[in-house]
Design a binder for these strands. Structure first.
Lengths: 158, 158
DNA sequence: ACTTGACCTCAACTTAGGTTGAGGTGCTTT
DNA sequence: AAAGCACCTCAACCTAAGTTGAGGTCAAGT
């Protein structure tokens, strides 16, 4: 039996990558960024506890709905680090997302409906439409790609 | 009357920026990327026709729902360039978005509901959940920030 | 003894969507 | 004539979320 397939509750990075579908380089990156953690074995190889798979799943799921890593980290920071997180812990973390998602869904629905009525009707050229004048929520900030961010303020545009 | 406030149907970039809420540098950028167009006056200053305001509104609205500029450009390329686009032209453009948005809304709703049931129930650790195993739509690709992209294939993860 | 495989580090590169700054033009107003 | 303003170009920089590659370690198999 090769050493990287030993059946302990610790997984080597290759196994984690394979089981989670996350590349090794991304796992390194998430660890650097403090979203996941590992210990090292004698040969300085990372050993991941099994619940890293859940964390990775949570990270990927959250990303797929547009939440930036920084916010995902904040959410994960709520998880107990000393013991393996239980259902209740994950549920608490998920709760925050529920609100964010609901807001985003609501926003998308409004935009979709505006696209049917508002663009067609011509108000897109003026300052009335929700679409055009989105001073309410989900705004942009700074340089770089825009994403769904849980409650950030708007920058000035002068 | 200052020269930059002349009442023609051509707008200088400062006016466009002010009326649209888009920074001058972003307008430059959009023009470089071919999303908007201008002519030049005697002093080499950009002159924008009034319907650039609609284009900008469309660009911003589309960005706010997560559509990348490249796709927005594709959509805008459908607009007539010779004449000022009319309602019907915009409606056609908006139609494509409607589908994209509906798909995304559906996806978000599913994730939101999964977050209530699925994370709590523990299946997040295994390969069953929609959340965890999103092989159906809306996937990630390449380096850089991830966004909502109308129909792109998945990369290999080897 | 040597190659293979899994892993390590660190630095540099990538894409998207811009921003920032340096240096220049040309009109108007003082 | 000097200052101010609106604009121009071009190059460099920025963030996010990683990827890529060079060079190195360590254990197992041939």
């Amino acid at each position: 039996m090769p050493h990287h397939l030993k059946s302990t509750d610790q997984l080597p990075i290759g196994q984690v990558a394979e089981r989670s579908g996350v590349t090794i380089s991304a796992i390194h990156f998430y660890e650097r960024e403090g979203l996941i953690f590992s210990t090292r074995n004698a040969g300085n190889h990372r050993q991941f506890s099994r619940d890293v798979l859940r964390r990775l799943a949570f990270i990927r799921a959250s990303q797929r709905v547009g939440i930036p890593l920084a916010n995902i980290k904040e959410a994960l920071d709520e998880l107990p680090l000393k013991r393996t997180p239980k259902e209740a812990d994950w549920a608490k973390v998920g709760k925050q997302w529920h609100k964010v998602l609901s807001a985003q869904i609501e926003y998308l629905v409004r935009v979709r409906d505006d696209l049917s009525t508002c663009i067609g009707c011509g108000c897109l050229s003026f300052q009335r439409c929700q679409l055009v004048n989105p001073d309410d929520a989900m705004s942009t900030e700074g340089p770089g790609a825009r994403r769904l961010q849980p409650g950030t303020p708007r920058p000035d545009r002068t």
